Simulated scan of single mutants.
Amino acid sequence: MRRADETWKVWITSCDTDAALGRTGASRCGLTVNAEGPSPIGTERRRTVGQGQGCISQGGRVPTTKELVCLANSRKRNGRCIAGIDIQSNLWVRPVSSRPGHEVSEAERRYRNGAEPRILDVVSVRLFRPKRFGFQTENWILDPGSQWEKRGRVGWDDLRRLEQRPKHLWVNSEDSTRKGLNDRVAVEQEFALLNSLKLIRVNAVTVEVDRPYDANRDLEVRAKFRHAGATYILKVTDAVYEERFRALGVGSYELSESFLTVSLGEEFKGHFYKMVAAIIERRTTERTTEPGSDG
């Protein structure tokens, strides 16, 4: 187990930030972070990317730029759901559009070179303001006129420092779907919901691919795992893993130790549904981060 004063590192390829990564690290003008030991965030010098650029949004608002560790790029009707942890505040941020479905379009999320944000990218995103939707307290309205930029990557050890350890994933009850387990929360229990995103670590995951009730629809992909003494079977909306396991066909597939981003969606027919928005396998995750930027 690491001591609090041990060094940990992450590549950030920007010279515009000097912010806290989690609670112990800080980026240093494109160099490897080498912050030793915890330091009070309030005592650190901070600079927001884009500060001083004089950018004014519609309605006269000055946008803010946040650098997020991308921890979800999941399927959503008409677009994607993108979410990550802000390296300065260590809080979840979900950029959303001002459209009724709040989805992020392809044009809004792609980098300058046309690439798609990947899980574990450090992404610079310009945002207008926080926009809470019920218990989805993490939502921020994105600036549709700005382009996202990749500033670097993080690795498995960095995820360990971002790991959350909730006692349960919101509310567990016997009110599950036919194929799921602990996979939804009734609207009557909304009072108990305070947020909608979790990053958890599990020892193993079973990916289950099954035929839908409607034969005209794509194969369904679910993740079965245990966390904090409870078993869950949740739909997978991670666009990469969903496509990968659909291609393998109906069956069960075992994964070893992984991080999961679990999201709680908006109300649908009287329930809020839990989803696995990202699967991050330890065996395929780089132990060290990459210094390059393609954004």
Rank of each mutant, 00 (worst) to 15 (best):
E6I: 02
G30K: 07
E6S: 14
V33Q: 04
E6T: 14
G22C: 03
T17P: 00
T48S: 07
I41Q: 13
D16K: 12
S57V: 00
A20P: 00
C29T: 07
G54C: 01
A19G: 08
A20S: 15
V33G: 09
C15T: 15
G42Y: 09
A20N: 10
R46T: 14
S27P: 08
E44V: 11
A35I: 04
T13I: 00
S57Q: 02
W11M: 09
E44G: 04
R28H: 06
V10L: 14
E36W: 01
T24I: 10
L31Y: 07
G30V: 03
I56Q: 09
R23M: 04
G25C: 06
V33W: 05
R46M: 05
G54W: 03
V33A: 15
R47W: 09
E44R: 15
T13E: 13
Q51M: 04
A19N: 15
T43Q: 12
T48F: 04
I56N: 01
G25V: 07
L31E: 13
R46W: 05
C15D: 15
T43F: 09
W8G: 00
P38W: 04
S14E: 08
T48E: 14
A20Y: 05
N34K: 11
A26G: 07
K9M: 04
T13W: 01
P40Q: 13
A35M: 08
A19R: 15
N34A: 14
S39W: 03
G54S: 03
R45Q: 06
S57G: 13
P38H: 07
P40A: 14
T24F: 05
W11I: 01
R28T: 10
V10M: 15
C55A: 10
A35G: 13
V33T: 15
T32S: 09
A20R: 12
N34I: 03
A20W: 02
V49W: 09
G37D: 07
R45V: 08
C55I: 14
I12H: 07
A19V: 13
I56D: 00
T24L: 07
K9L: 03
S14N: 12
R46N: 10
S39L: 11
I56F: 02
Q51W: 02
R45T: 11
L21E: 04
E6M: 10
I56K: 10
G42R: 12
R28D: 10
S39K: 12
T7I: 15
